[in-house]
């Protein structure tokens, strides 16, 4: 579980996050949605420790991150898996080397053991037989799946995903969404997904936080989002025609 308390962060005198309180639950896909510039990425980077908050606290399983010693911070980071928007695969390494990377860095496993684990996760993301390929030789969707495999290979407690569907076709995007949700449930991971893809909200939005102008404007589940009358949320959500039609169908009871 990750608890965020009164989080403030600004740059050059301009406040981007203006006091966010929120709780990300374990074993659930927690979505952060909002328009571009609403502070989603800054929020994520504060949680990952890449930005230091100006005020407030982020607690991992009840312990404030700011109180962690350097050693504890390093330890925590080995428990974090991150899926970057572009995949962020190391382009000088093969698929297998990319996935094996966290194991090589943080475990003392023998090469054979590491390989077994890598093949296990590659199988889990349906990428068997691609071990020796370079990232440039596989499609965008496959790169995302390799990035997921790398993020989960060390059995993380927390999984962060920054717009996992950007640049993917709807079918691949659904596969990625479902994979993230299944892994979250199977491994009881606290998953945080940043997205503005409304299909993802429909697919995996177990808990949703809506950010607007650096503030938490709304929170709820994918079921709640259909019935909310909050105008800030409806203006954002129903800018998608597809979502508008889904809602109409739901209200009609289809």
């Amino acid at each position: 579980m990750i608890q965020v308390k009164n989080l403030h962060k600004g740059f050059n005198g301009q406040e981007v996050l203006k006091g966010i309180d929120y709780q990300f639950e374990r074993g659930k896909t927690n979505l952060i949605i909002g328009q571009s510039g609403s502070g989603k990425s800054v929020f994520l980077k504060c949680m990952l420790g890449l930005f230091k908050p100006d005020q407030g606290a982020i607690e991992y399983d009840g312990k404030p991150y700011s109180n962690f010693s350097d050693e504890e911070q390093r330890e925590l980071r080995t428990e974090i898996g991150m899926l970057f928007q572009g995949g962020a695969l190391f382009d000088s390494m093969t698929v297998e080397e990319n996935v094996m990377f966290p194991l090589r860095m943080f475990t003392n496993q023998k090469r054979g053991e590491m390989r077994d684990r890598v093949h296990e996760v590659l199988k889990r993301v349906n990428l068997e037989g691609n071990d020796t390929k370079m990232p440039s030789e596989i499609s965008g969707g496959m790169q995302k799946r390799v990035a997921i495999a790398r993020a989960i290979v060390n059995k993380p407690k927390y999984l962060f995903c920054d717009e996992p569907n950007s640049g993917l076709d709807p079918q691949t995007a659904t596969i990625i969404d479902n994979l993230i949700q299944q892994l979250t449930h199977e491994n009881e991971i606290t998953t945080v997904v940043i997205t503005h893809d409304m299909n993802s909200v429909l697919e995996i939005g177990e808990r949703i936080a809506f950010l607007k102008d650096g503030l938490l404007a709304w929170k709820g589940t994918k079921e709640d989002i259909f019935h909310t009358q909050d105008k800030t949320v409806t203006d954002f959500v129903y800018s998608s025609n597809l979502f508008k039609k889904v809602r109409e169908a739901q209200l009609k009871g289809h």
């Binding site: 990952l48 890449l50 911070q73 390093r74 330890e75 925590l76 980071r77 080995t78 974090i80 991150m82 970057f84 928007q85 572009g86 962020a88 695969l89 190391f90 382009d91 990377f101 966290p102 860095m105 943080f106 962060f160």
Partner: peptide, 17 residues
């Protein structure tokens, strides 16, 4: 620089490297 642009350096930092 390419690693910076494609977030590979961020990936290293997030991993605690």
């Amino acid at each position: 620089g390419s690693m910076r642009v494609t977030e590979q350096i961020d990936a290293l930092e997030v991993m605690g490297i």
